[in-house]
């Protein structure tokens, strides 16, 4: 296991020896140990059924560990209700139609805020603010059921972010999204990150993880089998094969180039780095050809 995150502060989330067994006997989490620091962005990857969703459901108390402890802000979560925990931890599930129900987009946001027991004025101000921020104010009076897939996803996210939780947890946010939607999602998480939010993202989208998530844990059969910088974790052939992951094409390209002698391409990690590297290389090559 590769763990290189060392910080003097106490982690925001501490998961200690957590096991979870579903009532039907399925062992979904086995001895999970994980620390997440404030402001960190963490990816969770792994095959279908690896236990990713189960793990995040333990964070806000939707399910309680069969054994082990979870501390958030240094407080054990087992004595707190789901409602209390969700103020701090916003879980955003995959399917927006599992939560949209109100008469209008505005009411949908209001519902989330109401549960925070704000007064009327605060409620109105906050709702306006969030609708603007998510570009949803033009749909204010529309039924959430008539929104497009991307828009309803946005609304579902807005209905959690409006509660301003310190930790945001997404379950497969990029699933079924087109490139533009993914881009706007990336923008959104970057803004939240700049605000100092801690972000956890479950994803099967390896290109996305490679480019935007600094640290990743890999899960298999309820265990964490690797934890470290995304590039290191995902560069490990042994691990990716075990988790049925296929490396991003750019990574495959750079590995192939390394094999034939381009050692320094290893430093280029993101897609843009590699493009730049190749452009520079070709430019140097053409200039040297011209000089000859």
């Amino acid at each position: 296991m590769i763990t290189i995150y060392i910080s003097k502060d106490l982690p925001l989330i501490i998961i200690e020896n957590v096991d979870y067994v579903y009532p039907n006997g399925t062992v979904a989490l086995k001895n999970i140990n994980l620390n997440v620091h404030k402001g960190e962005m963490l990816g969770i990857m792994g095959k279908n059924g690896a236990g990713k969703t189960t793990l995040i459901r333990t964070l806000n108390g939707l399910i309680r560990p069969t054994s082990g402890d979870i501390y958030i802000n240094n407080e054990n979560t087992n004595s707190k209700s789901i409602a209390e925990l969700s103020k701090n931890i916003g879980l955003i599930f995959q399917n927006p139609s599992h939560q949209l129900f109100a008469n209008s987009v505005e009411d949908e946001i209001n519902f989330s805020l109401k549960n925070l027991y704000l007064n009327k004025e605060e409620l109105q101000i906050k709702t306006n603010e969030i609708l603007k921020k998510f570009n949803l104010d033009k749909y204010r009076d529309r039924s959430p059921l008539n929104l497009s897939g991307g828009e309803s996803k946005k609304l579902a996210i807005a209905s959690i972010i409006c509660r301003a939780p310190e930790i945001l947890v997404f379950d497969e946010p990029t699933l079924g999204q087109d490139a533009r939607e993914i881009e706007s999602f990336i923008k959104l998480i970057n803004t939240e990150k700049e605000k100092g939010k801690t972000i956890i993202i479950i994803t099967h989208n390896i290109e996305f993880a490679f480019e935007f998530i600094p640290r990743t844990i890999l899960m298999e059969s309820g265990e964490i089998i690797a934890d470290g910088p995304t590039q290191n974790v995902l560069n490990n052939n042994f691990l990716t094969e075990r988790s049925s992951l296929i490396l991003p094409q750019t990574r495959q390209l750079s590995l192939a180039l390394q094999k034939i002698g381009f050692q320094d391409i290893n430093k280029a990690v993101s897609k843009n780095d590699i493009i730049e590297y190749l452009i520079n290389f070709l430019r140097n090559k053409t200039t040297s050809v011209q000089e000859e």
Binding site: N60, I82, S86, I92, F93, H98, Q99, S112, N115
Partner: peptide, 16 residues
């Protein structure tokens, strides 16, 4: 299963 997911999603936004 779906009902459980719905309960989860609503509770995560403060529904009691």
């Amino acid at each position: 299963n779906e009902a459980q997911n719905i309960i989860d999603a609503q509770q995560s936004r403060g529904y009691e």
